[in-house]
């Protein structure tokens, strides 16, 4: 153990605090903004002292946006539901397809396996718009434009490669001997996959799922091009706050708070699954 002087400790604490403030400040500020009206938000100089109000949240939840000019209908709760539904369904589909595929790529070196795995990864290389414009035309022809199924399908471009490549690494880290031992004990390959490979890669699968969820949740361009208002997630729906009578900063802030809440909650919940070390001591290294 290295010795650290009190001075070093203090400096380190200050540096850490600065970093945390740097990253957390925008979120804190948005959180404060969400309880203010447009007038208090836009005053100069800005101040942290204000009379909190719940009107922003009220407007989002009831779907009625009161501006100085008129009363507008907004669909924020619908967007929030779309976000949850699209992300959950996309990650579920990607898991169902990606985890067994990752296992196959990790354990069975068949002809062209590396090429296929790389092709899947390469979906992430192309700028999304390049893919989306022709895809929008095709989708219109085959009737998938503006459907949940169509969107979930396209979302696989984000989720599937991510899950495949992360989980593959975790499967490769499991000693094949552990799986052999289970096979030799008399279990089928499928039982081995279920009882040995899946639990041991559990933390990796959780991490990959969480990342895929966050990527899917934050996606903007796919739904913007391929879906209409009633299928759009919050990322696209937030555009509605830029109204003819001005930008509704208060509602935007409240919308952001509501839309980061699920991912934040999920990340905190999944944290315990992300802890590694499950395989420590199993195999003498």
């Amino acid at each position: 153990m290295e010795y650290t002087s009190p001075l070093e400790k203090t400096l380190r604490a200050i540096a850490l605090t600065l970093v945390v403030i740097f990253f957390m400040f925008p979120i804190l500020w948005i959180f404060l903004m969400s309880f203010q009206t447009n007038e208090t938000i836009l005053r100069v100089p800005p101040s942290v002292v204000f009379e909190p109000t719940l009107t922003n949240y009220q407007a989002l939840i009831t779907g009625k946006l009161e501006t100085s000019a008129a009363s507008l209908e907004i669909n924020f709760m619908r967007n929030l539901f779309n976000s949850v539904f699209l992300s959950v369904a996309s990650v579920a589909v990607a898991m169902l397809l990606g985890v067994p595929a990752a296992y196959a790529f990790a354990r069975h070196k068949f002809r062209g396996s590396e090429d296929i795995a790389f092709t899947l990864l390469s979906f992430r290389f192309a700028p999304p718009l390049l893919v989306l414009l022709p895809l929008a035309l095709y989708f219109q022809q085959i009737g998938l434009a503006d459907t949940y199924i169509g969107l979930i399908w396209v979302y696989q471009l984000i989720c599937l490669p991510l899950i495949l490549w992360i989980v593959r690494g975790y499967f490769e880290d499991i000693s094949p001997d552990i799986e052999y031992a289970y096979r030799i004990a008399g279990h089928s390959w499928f039982a081995t996959f279920r009882k040995i490979a899946l639990p041991l890669a559990g933390p990796g699968i959780a991490a990959a799922g969480l990342l895929a969820f966050i990527f899917a949740w934050n996606n903007f361009i796919f739904a913007l091009v391929l879906a209409s208002a009633d299928k759009q997630p919050v990322t696209v729906g937030a555009l509605a706050f830029i109204t003819a009578s001005g930008i509704q900063y208060g509602q935007i802030a409240a919308g952001i708070v509501l839309s980061i809440a699920p991912t934040l909650a999920l990340a905190l919940y999944a944290q315990k699954y992300l802890v590694e070390g499950l395989s420590l001591g199993a195999v003498k290294g």
Partner: peptide
């Protein structure tokens, strides 16, 4: 297939199932 050969094997690196107790390990066959 390995599971149908009626074999018991002990590995040099033990290859115990890390997420199972010793009891479950021994019980697997």
């Amino acid at each position: 297939e390995a599971e149908d050969r009626g074999i018991g094997m002990a590995f040099q690196n033990f290859a115990l199932f890390p997420h199972m107790s010793a009891f479950e390990n021994i019980a697997s066959p």
